[in-house]
Write a protein that binds this DNA or RNA. Structure first.
Lengths: 165, 165
DNA sequence: ATATATCATCTGATCAACAGATGATCTGTA
DNA sequence: TACAGATCATCTGTTGATCAGATGATATAT
């Protein structure tokens, strides 16, 4: 018998995360044909609906997307009538990106399909474990995200805001 | 009061995984200055040491790296004396990639530093939760990886092998 | 007022990823 | 045995995405 060949015993978080995330992208891309730019457009739309970030830059920073890319991502979403660029009343340089009714509808449907895909992807885990994994990943990410305010102006804004209270 | 602003309540696995993985890459890159090609070289070296995959193609498939990229990744690792290309006695087309003593040493040291980085990255979770997260991620990934044999010739080989027993 | 910073956008340059071709070798088959 | 088709590692050329930098409009600070 040679040395151990079994993968599961070799701890390699980077590899494991990459495998899961790659699979997520693949699986999700299949059910997001109706959202422009696939998973990218989905992420943007999701963020627009669930958070309200002040500017495109904030949106971009939140998703770690380049600001110049964000421009044409929103172009496409707007072209499909999923979001609108409204002038920001408080700052005429900025645009408020707001989801249309149709955008919210499309997102809701997409989210259901994505959730289904995630169930399949995580089918190696029991239901409880899946829930735990979702929760832990979410919390780890949230912590990382808050820890690094520079990466997301919105967080910094929030911190200043919290401080004021 | 506006709609909810809190991130942690919005389930978005793709976003969360991306945040954690991105942070992993950043953090790990810092402590892998001595490994050529940074985290990529590290992953290859790690795979070479811990698994024994027959060919460069298998190595590439395992890590989802293009075969043409694998060529120069190994070029660099070999140039640094971390691995060797040995002719495969059974198949003269193929090369066995084997770690040198120095390679194993460098890897071991790197793995310790990477583990330390992971502790920092996951510091938003308790020790138990960190362990759970590592375990669940690993198992989810392993399951995905085995589920898709085409992605990794080695797995297919293993399946045939298992069938024979 | 003037200077500096920020927002969204556009342009151009760069660079990594991939498809395709190549030479060597293996496997199967007639 | 010879031949066809597949596979291994490598090389080359192209392409497509990413990002730095510039721009015009606007905000903020001195």
């Amino acid at each position: 018998m040679a040395q151990r060949t079994d993968l599961s015993t070799t701890r390699n978080l980077g590899w494991a995360l990459a495998v899961v995330l790659r699979r997520w992208h693949e699986g999700v891309e299949d059910v997001l044909k109706d959202v422009p730019q696939g998973s990218r457009g989905y992420q943007v739309l999701s963020t627009v609906v669930h958070e309200q970030l002040p500017t495109q830059v904030a949106l971009a920073a939140h998703l770690s997307i380049d600001r110049t890319v964000m421009t044409y991502l929103i172009d496409e979403l707007e072209g499909d009538g999923l979001v609108e660029r409204r002038p920001d009343p408080a700052d005429r340089r900025a645009r408020r990106i707001v989801a249309t009714a149709r955008g919210r509808k499309v997102l809701a449907a997409a989210e259901r399909r994505v959730a289904a895909v995630e169930d399949v992807i995580l089918s190696g885990l029991s239901a409880d474990e899946q829930a735990a994994f979702q929760d832990l990943t979410q919390r780890a990410a949230t912590h990382i995200h808050h820890e690094d305010p520079n990466a997301d102006p919105c967080t910094a804004v929030r911190q200043v805001f919290d401080q004021a209270n």
